[in-house]
Computed example of a mutant assay.
Amino acid sequence: MKYLKKFRVLIFGLLAYLTLVFFLYLVEAGAESANIHSFMDAIWYSIVTLTTVGYGDFFPVTSVGKIIGIAFVIGSLGLLGLLIGKAVERFNEIQEKRKMGLNGTDFSNHIVIIGWNDFSREVVKQLRNSDRRVAIVTEQKDQIDLIYGSFGKDDVFVLFSDWRDTSNFDKLNLEQASVVFVNLPNDTDNLIAMLNVKKVNSKVDFVVALESSDLRDTFFSAGCTHVLSKNAIAARLIASYTYEPDVAMFANDLITSTVYNEESEFDIQQYRITSSNPFANQTFGHAFHTLKQKHNVIAIGICKTQNGTRELIKVPQDDTVLEVGDYLILILNGKTEIEIVREFGIKEGV
């Protein structure tokens, strides 16, 4: 119905225009000293006038012709205003579409966050400290500018969309994502969102923050990689502050990402062992002592993957061999992180 109305207006306007051009031709063609002698001359004059080009090669000489000419001049102002308005409207539509993320992103090996709140914001802060790219899905349009204002646009992408609308998932480049963090207000929504993402990328790892820790097994059965309870984590840390505050402060510092090149900031990081890593096929004991002496970095664990299952070995025996594909877990600061990245030839993380 909307398009039919526009079509009718277009047809009416075209007929009105052709009628004026025809009358202009009629009154001018036989006039003395007239220079509009044909219907095409009248059309040419009208187009030149309406587009405000104004060559002056054709012009009306009769009174009626001049009145019609005035109509074309007034019409040219309206046409110019319409064209400028449409151009501005189109430009605003393009800007709004880009702002809402509807053009998509070409990020790869990035983190996708579904659901935006204060907890998500803190997670993004830590991810950006680790130089990870992040794509965010939010239903809060007023948060888009705030997110970009806090984190910039180079390494953070925001998609304004209902998380239930899976047709927009292609804008997130989910096929190239490394991890999806689901952080919605309730656990039922978290489960539904996770299953919807799995339809697009069944191999991606999932991290879900639960309200109820009783549902951990349910999420693991559904294919979730890591299931966390925000209340349980907070409770453990708070309880630790009550009777061993120094340990709690140390633990809190370690789980916070380091600031680049900052010597006083410590963090726990993991690095994949590649074939070019100096400790590939070496023992954990050799890596431990070398890293401590050379960089003052402490190795505390290894993660091995066998048949798709990850095995975390805490404080491994000295004779444990570091194989290609394993992850070496280290305690280091922001300055030594630069040295480790240079020596290992790879950034932290999976």
Rank of each mutant, 00 (worst) to 15 (best):
Phe206Arg: 03
Phe206Trp: 06
Ser202Val: 14
Thr225Val: 00
Val200Asn: 05
Ser221Lys: 15
Asp217His: 11
Ser229Val: 08
Val204Phe: 12
Asn231Val: 13
Gly223Leu: 04
Ile192Pro: 01
Lys198Glu: 07
Ser202Phe: 13
Leu195Cys: 03
Leu191Trp: 01
Asn190Lys: 08
Phe206Leu: 07
Val208Leu: 12
Lys199Leu: 10
Thr188Lys: 06
Ala222Trp: 08
Asp205Ser: 11
Val227Thr: 10
Asp205Tyr: 13
Leu195Pro: 00
Leu228Trp: 09
Ala234Met: 14
Asn201Val: 13
Thr218Ala: 02
Lys203Ile: 06
Thr188Asn: 05
Val204Arg: 06
Asp217Ser: 15
Phe206His: 04
Ser221Gln: 14
Ala209Leu: 14
His226Glu: 09
Leu195Lys: 15
Ala235Tyr: 04
Leu210Trp: 09
Asp217Ala: 13
Phe206Ser: 07
Phe220Leu: 13
Asp189Thr: 03
Leu215Phe: 15
Ala209Cys: 08
Phe206Met: 07
Thr218Met: 05
Ala209Arg: 15
Val197Ser: 04
Ser213Ala: 12
Val207Pro: 00
Ala193Leu: 11
Asp214Ser: 12
Leu228Phe: 13
Asn201Ala: 13
Lys198Asn: 04
Phe219Thr: 01
Glu211Cys: 02
Asn190Arg: 02
Leu237Arg: 13
Ala193Trp: 11
Ser212Asn: 15
Thr218Glu: 07
Arg236Ile: 00
Phe206Pro: 01
Ser221Thr: 14
Lys230Asp: 00
Ser202Pro: 15
Ala193Lys: 08
Lys198Trp: 11
Asp205Thr: 06
Phe220Ala: 08
Leu195Asp: 10
Arg236Leu: 01
Asn196His: 13
Ser202Ile: 12
Leu237Tyr: 10
Val204Trp: 11
Ile192Gly: 03
Phe219Cys: 00
Leu237Thr: 07
Ala222Asp: 07
Gly223Glu: 05
Ile233Arg: 02
Arg236His: 09
Ser213Met: 03
Val204Ser: 08
Ala232His: 02
Ser229Trp: 07
Val197Ala: 04
Met194Trp: 10
Glu211Asn: 15
Asp189Gly: 02
Val208Lys: 05
Ser202Gly: 03
Thr218Gly: 01
Leu228Ala: 12
Ala193Thr: 06
Arg236Ser: 08
Leu228Pro: 05
Leu191Glu: 05
Glu211Val: 12
Val227His: 09
Phe219Trp: 03
Arg236Gly: 04
Leu215Asn: 10
Val197Phe: 04
Asn196Lys: 13
Lys199Cys: 00
Met194Asp: 08
Lys203Gly: 11
Val197Lys: 03
Ala193Asp: 04
Leu191His: 02
Ala234Ile: 11
Ser229Glu: 04
